[in-house]
């Protein structure tokens, strides 16, 4: 049962976190999408392991549903979008690479610092896992802050959602499977709307760089 061991879970979680780091670093929109795909599949794996542990069928269904939406439909949407508008290269970040990495390190340190420790009281056995997924959440928000491209921001939000789901699943803060499917469906609607907006932005502004949208200020 290596797959169910916490080492393996930890590995998944690390992969999820690392994918966020790479999202910070990637230069192309497509690679960001692939990174998201990778992250989602890692999350799905995680969910599978948990559902096996719990041995619950509804949970497995949720996992399947998650897999379909996050690993297949959403990336396909994105890739279509990229192909249609031919915006291959992602818009750069605010901070340069070393600074970005430095900030990520700081965030990781913060999450492991003492004052967040009580958070793991939810599932004391999975301390590192929880902290790491919390770090994923922070890193994802930082991704939205750091990237100027509209698509990257979308990916950031989705990654944030992945971080939250992984945290919740690990901590056992699970809800009714029906509701979870609803949440995932909600996410799908969100992805559709957001992609429409991205293409609208590209049509109106000729770029995905959100910093060009500066008219709405005081």
């Amino acid at each position: 049962m290596f797959l169910a061991s916490s080492q393996f879970l930890y590995f998944m979680e690390i992969m999820i976190f690392v994918s966020v780091i790479f999202m910070h670093m990637c230069k192309k929109n497509t690679s960001a999408v692939f990174l998201y795909m990778f992250q989602s599949s890692m999350l799905t794996l995680l969910l599978i392991i948990i559902s096996i542990k719990e041995a619950s069928l509804p949970f497995a269904m949720v996992t399947v549903f998650t897999f379909i939406i996050k690993v297949i439909i959403a990336p396909v949407f994105f890739l279509n979008l990229v192909k249609r508008h031919k915006f291959k290269f992602a818009v750069s970040t605010y901070l340069n690479m070393p600074m970005t990495l430095l900030t990520l390190t700081v965030l990781l340190t913060i999450t492991h610092y003492k004052f967040l420790k009580p958070l793991v009281s939810l599932a004391p056995s999975k301390e590192n896992l929880l902290l790491l997924s919390f770090a994923t959440i922070l890193a994802s928000i930082f991704l939205i802050i750091n990237r100027r491209g509209a698509l990257s921001q979308m990916v950031g939000i989705l990654s944030l959602e992945n971080g939250i789901v992984s945290f919740a699943s690990l901590a056992g803060l699970e809800e009714n499977p029906g509701l979870q499917i609803g949440i995932t469906f909600n996410l799908l609607v969100w992805v559709i709307i957001a992609t429409v907006f991205v293409s609208m932005i590209y049509r109106k502004f000729g770029t995905l760089n959100v910093t060009t949208m500066k008219d709405l200020k005081e």
Binding site: Y94, I145, V210, L216
Partner: peptide, 12 residues
Amino acid sequence: SGNINGYILYIF
């Protein structure tokens, strides 16, 4: 400021 990244930074 009109900058969405800044806005999310506030939240953060």
